[in-house]
Nucleic acid binder design. Structure first.
Lengths: 209, 209
DNA sequence: GATAAAATTAACTAATCAGTTAGTTAATTA
DNA sequence: TAATTAACTAACTGATTAGTTAATTTTATC
């Protein structure tokens, strides 16, 4: 039976971690509970012991991720002296997290691709919260006459769309580079260079001159 | 048996259309061949008569879409007198197509979210081709000293990421607006306003001053 | 009009899926 | 230390899935 001593927290975490990786790689529907159980080296019934069902597991995976990135972005913003700094830090911290946790962009894009049809409610709240952060930055920047008026939602999606897609398409871009050296798909671009380019693009465009 | 006269082309098209809608709405894995057959009001075995298998059907759906958008963008570009015009038209024609065919952004984002792991080969080629278009515009603009140097791949993803996400998240944004009027999620934004904002953002940032 | 080919049908198949059940074992409690 | 609880297991269940088969019907060809 048990190969070693029991540790419930450790078991649960193992399940969550493997679920996160598999949902990220294969998507929710193509990932079976058996997949997750096998990857975690636990009996499938255990997953129902710890989580209500497959979607309950998914919800926990996603809420963990959203909480983490929100904290990352918020905590980074606290050290800023200006709204332009805040925008920069928003972009850098989001980029940093996304590159370090590539399952996050994959999961997020999948959810957003069907308008969150199966989006757990708390995830919806988290996303609105994240957008609020950026929206607030842009609004204050406008009030301070640092930035022009902007469509915050579009800014948001240009930033996170750009970043997320840069993460998720890495293998594709590497493949494309091998096939055609004339096309620069940024296969070796560093995360900071990407974040910097996006930040400079937004700043140069929005700043009042 | 047959409820009316047979028309093979019409039957095939009906299957493709319904497959496109369902794959777009539910994703590949959650859409069953039975779903598609029922939606098309045909016998399931017919799908195997016309297409090799489920993934063969998917490939045909996707290649149709990519050919269509590529043509749309290319044909629009032919009427341009300057590289800046070309960029504008690239963005506007992509936006126009994406808004008129919301299943395309949904399908594309899903594929890109897992780095095209299941991406049909011809779709990979189509995407590279589309990116080449933009990359070429930016390169020429740089050579003509109209635009500064840019990371074409990041520009590409900021543009298509922004546009695609604006399309796919429409219902989410409407929902968010209802819950909190203080947040402007651009729920009623017009496609041309979005395209214009994205174009102006890229132009203002990249143009040499 | 007869035959062949194309389009279509109903029924079938083996495998897989989310979830369940009853039993076992380790850890905790009294 | 015995009883209870928590963590875990193997096996099961009914429904669903992609794909198949053989038969039927319609259309095209001669």
């Amino acid at each position: 039976m048990a190969k070693q001593k029991r540790n419930a927290q450790e078991t649960k975490l193992k399940i969550l971690t493997n679920a996160k990786l598999l949902f990220s790689k294969q998507g929710y529907d193509a990932t079976t509970v058996d997949d997750i159980a096998n990857a975690s080296d636990v009996n499938k019934a255990l997953i129902y012991y710890y989580f209500k069902n497959k979607s309950g597991l998914y919800s926990e995976v996603m809420s963990g991720l959203f909480d983490a990135i929100y904290e990352e972005v918020v905590n980074s913003s606290k050290k800023c002296n200006s709204v332009v700094d805040e925008l920069e830090v928003f972009i850098y911290s989001y980029a940093s997290y996304a590159y370090k946790h590539p399952y996050f962009p994959a999961l997020l894009l999948r959810e957003l691709s069907d308008s969150g049809a199966h989006l757990p409610e708390m995830m919806f709240v988290s996303m609105r919260r994240l957008f609020s952060l950026l929206s607030d930055i842009l609004k204050r920047a406008e009030e301070q006459k640092v930035f022009k008026h902007s469509i915050a939602m579009v800014v948001h999606f240009m930033i996170i769309g750009g970043l997320n897609l840069m993460v998720t398409t890495k293998p594709l871009r590497v493949k494309a580079m091998k096939m055609d050296k004339d096309i620069d798909t940024c296969a070796d671009c560093l995360v900071d260079d990407v974040a910097e380019f996006i930040f400079e693009t937004m700043k140069n465009s929005l700043e009042v001159r």
